[in-house]
């Protein structure tokens, strides 16, 4: 008789504990969102370095590329193509001179830019791989994105500086500022980390493209062709350089809005939603 009563009490406690635990699990799962550190010191340092290198490259390039662009526009608008008019010949010569200047500046700046971009790609890629790729399931990533409201406080601030700033340096300095300001909240920013990583890779791709084009056109060849037509290669290189430095449209402002808005949460159907 006593044994039966003891069994019943034990079973009752077991049931109660099981029930309590079952109720506790979703709450603790909710509060213990996966913790990640996507922006260790190495990433922040390489971002700062990339931003500085990009600014240096741009300041060296801006004058020469603008001059080249103006000359090219004048050449096209005056229908100088295939013309032997003295003015057109001089304009072609001036374009080639500017082009050579641009190649020289690029050749000097590319190695440093590449080194800093490589560092950013490697450190950011390492972080993404270790913190998300190996530690988390895609569902964990989704949970982090869903709980990103904390990151809203650090929406990008538009630079008050009136200085002319290129796309590349602006992009990286904004990234740097965001990551730096993020502090403890930075673990909730896989979107930002991904954007930095993919943009760095794309910038490296453009650098490779430009370097390959520069390599295939020796400056001697450019000067030899003084009297010939402007080649497509020259136009292509100028286009790539402009895309790298300033872009067709400046995406740097809206990029950072992606994924940082706060979605209003409706949670009245928790039994039918998987968390």
């Amino acid at each position: 008789m006593f044994n039966k009563r003891a069994m019943a009490v034990a079973c009752g406690w077991a049931l109660f504990l099981t029930h309590s635990l079952a109720q506790a699990v979703p709450q603790s799962a909710e509060s213990s969102r996966p913790k990640i550190n996507l922006f260790p010191t190495s990433v922040v340092a390489s971002l700062s370095e990339t931003s500085r290198a990009a600014r240096e490259m741009e300041s060296g390039m801006y004058t020469v590329v603008t001059r080249l662009d103006q000359q090219k526009q004048a050449y096209e608008s005056t229908q100088c193509e295939n013309s032997e008019d003295v003015g057109c010949v001089q304009l072609r010569k001036a374009i080639r001179g500017s082009y050579k200047d641009m190649l020289d500046v690029m050749q000097q700046s590319i190695p440093q830019m590449r080194t800093t971009l490589d560092d950013t790609v490697n450190s950011m890629g390492g972080s993404l791989r270790a913190e998300i790729g190996r530690k988390m399931t895609p569902g964990d990533v989704q949970r982090i994105l869903a709980g990103r409201s904390a990151s809203n406080a650090m929406s990008p601030r538009v630079s008050a500086s009136g200085n002319r700033q290129g796309k590349l340096s602006k992009m990286f300095s904004r990234y740097y500022e965001l990551v730096k300001r993020g502090g403890g909240q930075a673990d909730a920013l896989p979107v930002l980390a991904s954007q930095i990583y993919l943009d760095s890779m794309q910038s490296l791709y453009f650098l490779d493209l430009i370097e390959a084009e520069i390599g295939s056109q020796s400056t001697e060849l450019v000067l030899e062709l003084e009297w010939g037509e402007l080649t497509d290669q020259i136009s292509a290189t100028v286009t790539d350089v402009k895309a790298l430095l300033w872009g067709d449209t400046d995406r740097s402002e809206d990029i950072l809005e992606v994924g940082l808005e706060t979605p209003p949460q409706q949670d009245t159907y928790s039994d039918l939603l998987v968390r």
């Binding site: 992606v258 994924g259 209003p264």
Partner: peptide, 28 residues
């Protein structure tokens, strides 16, 4: 519409992050 925009935002964000993570994983 607001909720569908949220779903679209999730879709875009997830694809961006997963694309980057995939590249990072293959780089290793």
């Amino acid at each position: 519409k607001q909720r569908f925009r949220e779903a679209q935002q999730h879709f875009t964000d997830l694809q961006l992050v997963l694309d980057a993570v995939e590249v990072a994983c293959t780089q290793d």
